[in-house]
Amino acid sequence: MKNNWPLWEVFIRSRQGLNHKHVGSLHAADADMAIENARDVYTRRSEGVSIWVVPSEQITASNPDQKDELFDPAEDKVYRHPTFYDLPDGITHM
C-alpha cells in the first residue's frame, strides 16, 4: 500500500524586504507539517524569516515549448528600457 506524503515546494524569504525564493521541495502529510519540515530542513543556518509552502501538484508552469512565443516578443520592445531615449549631455537626476 502506498501512503506517501505529498510533495511540497518551499519558498523562503531570507530577510525582510526580499521576495520569497524557491529553495527546493520536501514531503509532508499536511500544510502545517510542511511549514515545520521546511523550517527544519531549509533554515537550519538562519536562512529565513518567512516560509511559504505550496503543494507541488498545485503549481501551474509555463510550457518550455512555448518559450519562444512567450518570451521572445519582449526582446525587441526596446522602448520599454530607459536607454532607448536620447537625452542631451549634462542632464542629471534622470
Partner: peptide, 13 residues
C-alpha cells in the same frame, strides 16, 4: 507512522 500521519491529515481536511 507515515500512514497515521496521512490518515490524520485526511481527517483534518
Amino acid at each position: 507512522v507515515r500512514e497515521a500521519a496521512i490518515a490524520f491529515a485526511e481527517k483534518k481536511k
